[in-house]
Design a binder for these strands. Structure first.
Lengths: 206, 206
DNA sequence: ATATTATGCAAGCAAGTACTTGCTTTATCT
DNA sequence: AGATAAAGCAAGTACTTGCTTGCATAATAT
């Protein structure tokens, strides 16, 4: 008779996290209604009952997904305050980082789009984040560049939206609509091209 | 006793269309699973049973939504083949038209994003449309402009994606995530700004 | 070792929903 | 006016799903 291997038990926090992570994945692919608690439990590798013991009901779990996963490590930190680096370098780096973030948070983004109609509050909050952590800091940076004369007569905020928007929609098309079914363009090429257009489009005419 | 007002009955085609339209609306806001046949019927102003008599089941109705509503009246026609008009005029007009289309087809777009995971075939088909009717014609136009020297060293296809992407993501943010909750920017200002950036970004350096 | 606490498991309830059936009503056609 | 075909209505079936309960079991604390 083998002595039973007494497996160490996960701490409540770890367990909670495991469930929330699984929930994000399942919610993101099936939507709130399409996701079943059974599947979430299976994905998390726990019993369905345990899920209810932790969160009470499906809706609570859903909320917790949003609370635990905030979108951005903020772009603000990515923008060097005193721009020692060139405009081009900053924007290229930003684009790369932004795409990285979008890709990593793909599930969350999909979920927000999915449920934005049914849960407008959450999605508005979410957008506020994109705004305050994405558009706004970049807008400020561009405004600065405009003051210093490097950037010409553009609305800094709209320009920021244009810039991030190019990458956002590119990613949506690539990741959500196409999957792996279409010849992928390399990220580097896309970044180079988009950044190029944007730089020339915003720089002051020599 | 009033004589009963004998109401004229809709033709089968009209009825069918009414149901499909209602289905688009409900599917779009609730997703495939979230939408109930009962609600679709109520929205269409018909009896639920009639819905089944027409379409057999929910899935057929869903497919029909995609078949009956194709996304684009194609951008190709919007691009004057022999460009008598200036680059700027063409792109401005295109932007305006594109935004119009996106807005009008908002429900369909939302639905595709909603169900792209569960029904990848339909969404890929849908994207093919965006591609062949949006990206490709615009890419060709830009390639032409490049040949004629007006546009500089850019990848025409990626540039097309950048251009349409700016507007797409702007609309997603405005319509899906924000609703009417945030100060709207006028479309004209957005178009002017985005087109401006794009033009300067793609024109050949003088 | 013993008590305690957390988790798994099986079963089930209540509500919702896609879809059916049998029948009545109403508009249209001849 | 009478026959026909289409639509409405009420009820029901089969199935799913969120959530609960009672109990057995395994890990931790004393």
């Amino acid at each position: 008779m083998k002595p039973q291997a007494r497996e160490a038990r996960l701490s409540p926090e770890e367990r909670r996290k495991k469930i929330v992570d699984a929930a994000l994945r399942v919610f993101s692919s099936k939507g709130f209604r399409g996701a079943t608690t059974k599947e979430i439990a299976r994905t998390a590798g726990i019993n369905e009952v345990t899920l209810f013991r932790y969160f009470g009901n499906k809706e609570n779990l859903f909320s917790e997904v949003f609370e635990h996963h905030s979108l951005f490590p903020t772009l603000r930190e990515l923008i060097p305050k005193r721009s020692e680096e060139s405009y081009e370098k900053v924007m290229t780096g930003l684009a790369a980082q932004f795409m990285e973030i979008l890709k990593r948070r793909k599930d969350l983004i999909r979920l927000v789009i999915l449920e934005s109609y049914q849960y407008p509050d959450q999605s508005v909050m979410f957008f506020q984040q994109i705004y305050s952590k994405g558009f706004q800091p970049l807008g400020e940076y561009l405004r600065e560049k405009k003051r210093s004369g490097e950037v010409g007569e553009v609305d800094p905020e709209l320009a920021a939206r244009a810039f991030l928007g190019m990458f956002f929609s590119f990613l949506v098309a690539q990741e959500f609509l196409l999957g792996k079914k279409v010849a992928q363009v390399s990220n580097e090429a896309v970044i180079r091209e988009f950044v190029g257009i944007f730089l020339r489009g915003t720089q002051r005419n020599a």
